[in-house]
Amino acid sequence: MDYHVWLAYVVTAIVFSLAPGSGMVNSISNGINYGTRKSLTAILGLQIGLAVHIILVGAGIGALIAKSAIAFTIIKWVGVVYLIWLGIQKWRDTSSLVADTSHDARSAGTLLRSAVLINLTNPKSVVFLVALFPQFIDPAGNQVTQLMILGATTVAIDATVMLGYTSLASQMGRYIRSGRIMEKINKLFGSMFIGCGALLAAAKS
């Protein structure tokens, strides 16, 4: 995989991980209730769920590349459109994300299992990965190697971001959950998604 392509993916993956979603809410909630140290198992759980999605999506994309170059190209363009649409939806989203602050004595194992299920049952992750991966894969190259690089990069970035959210929430939870702040965050990342989609579309023209 070309170094510049990988760097472009890193930027896009950071936007993906930072954007508000169920993983962010889980990390904020755990940070508020249990602190950073105990929440590490939940962050691990989120990454296990994400890794399962990556493996499933990667296997499907690899099979698609092997069968039809035209279908793969169509998927790439659908992905561009999806990124732009997602950005518009995120920009228009005025709802706030409120973390569950009910404090109960949950074990590390319970936090781990709960986090795994949160990502496993989040279909938006699968749709996003399906839209994202083909933009950075060279059909003429080794798909397995490229998918492994993209997958490892995604997990590493997401784990770092979730750790940041958890640590920040343990110190400033009430500000993160502010409706006004969340509206600004939604607009910021909506603009970023639109920008990513537009850049990918321009690169293909």
Rank of each mutant, 00 (worst) to 15 (best):
K67D: 13
T73P: 05
I88W: 15
L86N: 05
W91G: 02
A69S: 15
S68C: 09
W77S: 07
K76V: 00
G79E: 05
A71L: 10
K67E: 15
W85T: 02
I65D: 02
Q89F: 06
S95M: 08
Y82A: 13
I88H: 09
V80G: 03
A71T: 11
R92F: 02
G62A: 00
W77V: 06
W85H: 11
Q89D: 10
L86C: 03
S68E: 04
A66M: 10
S95Q: 10
L64Q: 07
S95I: 00
G79A: 00
A69F: 09
L83V: 03
I65C: 01
S68T: 06
G87N: 03
K67C: 09
T94H: 11
T73Q: 13
G62P: 01
Q89M: 10
K76A: 05
G62K: 00
S95R: 05
L86T: 10
I84P: 06
D93V: 01
I74F: 07
Q89N: 14
W91K: 12
S68G: 01
I65M: 12
A66T: 06
R92Y: 00
F72K: 11
T73K: 13
G62Y: 09
S95A: 12
L83H: 08
K76C: 12
W77K: 02
Q89H: 10
G79V: 11
W91C: 13
I70L: 14
V80S: 11
V81E: 02
A63M: 13
S68L: 06
L64I: 00
A71H: 01
I65H: 04
G79F: 01
I88T: 01
V78K: 05
L86E: 00
L64K: 01
L64E: 00
W85P: 10
I65E: 04
G79M: 06
I75D: 04
Y82P: 05
L86W: 06
A69V: 11
L64A: 00
I75C: 08
A66Y: 03
V81D: 07
W85L: 13
V78T: 12
Q89L: 12
T94G: 14
L83T: 03
T94S: 15
T73W: 06
G87W: 05
A69Q: 13
V78H: 07
I84M: 14
I74R: 03
G62R: 02
L86H: 07
I84D: 08
K90T: 15
I75Q: 12
G79P: 07
A63V: 00
I88Q: 11
L83D: 08
I70S: 14
V78R: 00
G62D: 01
A69C: 04
I70V: 15
V80A: 14
I88S: 03
S95G: 10
L83Y: 05
V81P: 03
A71M: 08
Q89C: 08
G79C: 00
G62V: 10
